[in-house]
């Protein structure tokens, strides 16, 4: 827990005009615009649809070309700081729907996870809400026999804030639990003097906090899966860079495109 003194922004202002309120109002306006225009999880688009975002940027255009030689399509997620967890959860469950056996292993794993979280010290009482919703979503899509209908239902549920955000919270809690369970290992990935528990309380459990390599490692490790992150930025050469997490897993279940600050889903 951190406690503190007041922001300097208002102490520096000469008039009683409240700068804080202006800044916060501006932030809310930007967030509102994003949520009005970008769905939580979008439809499948062609990779070339990225070109319109970078019409004059030759470095990005070359990289999009490289990307489209490796991947067929992209599914965008809303850039609200939850994009990694939302993209990861969606893409992994979508992939599992093609394999009933894998899906039921995953189902069992998640079913047992609540007790592990409670054993790690998470309050049963709040964890339960998110766990129940997560299980409800898994049950609802599991009850649909036809895989493509199940995927439609998954898409609908992930676009309903009431379900989607609960799924994100539970994935955040599972990830936090994993980092704390293996805290000696993960402490090497945290800068500064923060403990793994502090890091989890400040950067993993709260909504809207962006995810880094360490979040992806924790999420993959607790759900026994692998992610390939495809990095696309303005750095030097003309090809995108790919990383498997965990490193030794060469056939990932989930492919994500990372552009600085944001994750979308990729399809082979």
């Amino acid at each position: 827990m951190k406690m503190a003194d007041k922001s300097e922004s208002s102490t520096n202002s000469d008039t009683p005009t409240n700068q804080d309120e202006l800044i916060l109002a501006q932030q809310r306006k930007i967030q509102q615009e994003i949520s009005d225009t970008i769905p939580l999880v979008g439809p499948l688009d062609q990779i070339s649809s990225l070109e319109s975002e970078y019409s004059t940027d030759t470095i990005y255009l070359a990289k999009i070309k490289d990307l489209s030689s490796k991947y067929k399509s992209i599914r965008r997620t809303r850039p609200d700081g939850n994009c990694f967890f939302r993209a990861f959860g969606y893409a992994y469950i979508e992939k599992l729907l093609d394999d009933k056996e894998q899906f039921s292993l995953f189902y069992d794993l998640v079913e047992k996870s609540k007790n592990s979280l409670v054993a790690l010290g998470f309050p049963q009482f709040t964890v339960e809400d998110f766990y129940d919703t997560f299980m409800e979503v898994l049950k609802r899509i599991n009850d649909i026999d036809d895989a493509s209908d199940a995927k439609k239902e998954l898409h609908n549920l992930f676009n309903e804030q009431g379900y989607s955000d609960y799924m994100v919270v539970y994935l955040r809690l599972l990830t936090s639990g994993q980092l704390q369970k293996e805290q000696i290992f993960y402490s090497f990935f945290i800068d500064g003097e923060r403990t793994v528990a502090d890091f989890c309380h400040q950067e993993v459990e709260p909504m809207y906090k962006e995810s880094d390599h360490i979040h992806i490692m924790g999420a993959c490790s607790v759900l026994l899966t692998g992610v390939r992150v495809v990095y696309m930025d303005r750095g030097g050469n003309t090809s995108v860079t790919e990383h498997n997490i965990p490193q030794d897993r060469l056939t990932p279940d989930v492919y994500l495109l990372y552009r600085p600050g944001h994750y979308d889903i990729l399809y082979l």
Binding site: D5, E8, N18
Partner: peptide
Amino acid sequence: FYVKTCNKNPKKTKWWYHDD
């Protein structure tokens, strides 16, 4: 200064946390 200028709602303050 804070009590004179702040909003009634403390969530409308941008807090600056630094002291643990």
